[in-house]
Design a protein around this nucleic acid. Structure first.
Lengths: 215, 215
DNA sequence: ACGCAATGCATGGATTTCCATAGGTGCGCA
DNA sequence: TGCGCACCTATGGAAATCCATGCATTGCGT
């Protein structure tokens, strides 16, 4: 059976390698899409599902490691490098920058398959994490400017009274903002809101007594 | 000037290498301690300050990579591997397991020095993080069994009333426990306590409406 | 011109939290 | 045996939070 909720991208300039890898993956029930160069990969429209990128280091247009750096900014699938003429500095750099593995040809099929599985598992987790964060960020965008001012004060542990004073508004008004924030952020409790704020990396302004002074 | 609040451990079986590295580090104002084998390094009493371990992969008693795995459990300084006969799989494994760098002889002095600096900076941060966590953990140990039951309920966002019901005690008693927890954990506010609990990885039991349902 | 969203204020009551005081039980250790 | 500690309860008042109702101003887009 062909697993359909995940995919493997293969970027290699050698037609025979592409063919061989395609067959290997197919025999393991995995869907693969091949590209002959980095630019083809970049410009292609890729499905938005858990994936893995098998990347040859030596490509005609862009070096595999450079491609890795280029796509490092945005969201991209974990990379498994393969190479015919690898050197240690390259492998070190690749792994340091997050590559899942760095295999030298010839490699054992089992090693590649294992690396791909690890990569896809990793991508699944990363994507689910991203999705959750995305929801939170979207909710944060729904806040009004004032509410965005209230949030950090509240999660800093200030009393409503103190937070209101900081903003120069009445305590009642702050309570309303606070309540709206809780609702829009879908926080079940203050504790919840604090954890959400943590994930959104909202800075704490000036805790009632700075964050666990550790004294 | 010799920097005295940090140190570099060198483990290499070649006397000349040890000598050369010692001199190199000395010329950069860094204190170094050399060992001729892994077991010597392991059994040595090492100062508890920011450090870096320069580790030869090929050692007479234990393989450098195996040593890395052995000490992976506990706290140990970041490792910079050096080797005369390195291979790619070794380098990949080393970096995957957290090594800062993997240099093949001959390497440029500047590369080693750069790696050492990076390693020590990393160790500094790791140590400071560990120290903070250590303080929190110590405080947690000061809690009584009951207080340790109260903490997760409180940071889950339950009302005192609800938490008290869960424990089958009166609301007043729970308030007292809660208060003691706040004091012992040195939390300035509930928000603070939530963040502290996060760092201690205290599980949330059953939020008033499960943790940001993300619906 | 009108509606709507955002911001603001006030009052009042129900609920919850915070804190202090007073007291009781059981357990371990000097 | 006596002391301390953890644990439990009850009462009562002060402070803070939660919530609803009612209303005013500003600014933006239709």
């Amino acid at each position: 059976m062909m697993v359909d909720d995940q995919i493997v991208f293969i970027v290699d300039d050698d037609e025979r390698i592409r063919e061989a890898l395609s067959n290997l993956l197919a025999s393991h029930g995995m869907r693969a899409v091949v590209f002959g160069s980095a630019s083809h990969y970049i410009s292609a429209v890729k499905p938005d599902i858990p994936a893995c990128l098998i990347l040859d280091v030596e490509l005609p247009d862009i070096n595999g490691l450079d491609l890795q750096r280029q796509i490092a900014e945005g969201d991209h699938p974990p990379i498994v490098f393969i190479t015919g003429h690898g050197d240690i500095p390259s492998s070190v750099r690749a792994i340091k920058h997050g590559a899942v593995d760095f295999l030298t040809k010839p490699f054992r099929d089992a090693d590649l398959i294992a690396a791909i599985h690890a990569a896809i598992v990793q991508d699944r987790e990363k994507r689910s994490e991203r999705a959750e964060l995305g929801v939170l960020r979207q909710r944060y965008l729904d806040l009004t400017p004032r509410e965005r001012e209230v949030l950090p004060l509240v999660v800093s542990g200030l009393l409503n009274k103190q937070a209101a004073a900081k903003l120069g508004i009445s305590e009642v008004m702050l309570q309303i903002h606070r309540r709206n924030v809780m609702q829009k952020m879908a926080a079940a409790s203050l504790a919840d809101l604090v954890r959400i704020a943590e994930r959104l990396e909202i800075p704490i302004t000036h805790s009632r007594r700075a964050g666990g002074s550790l004294a």
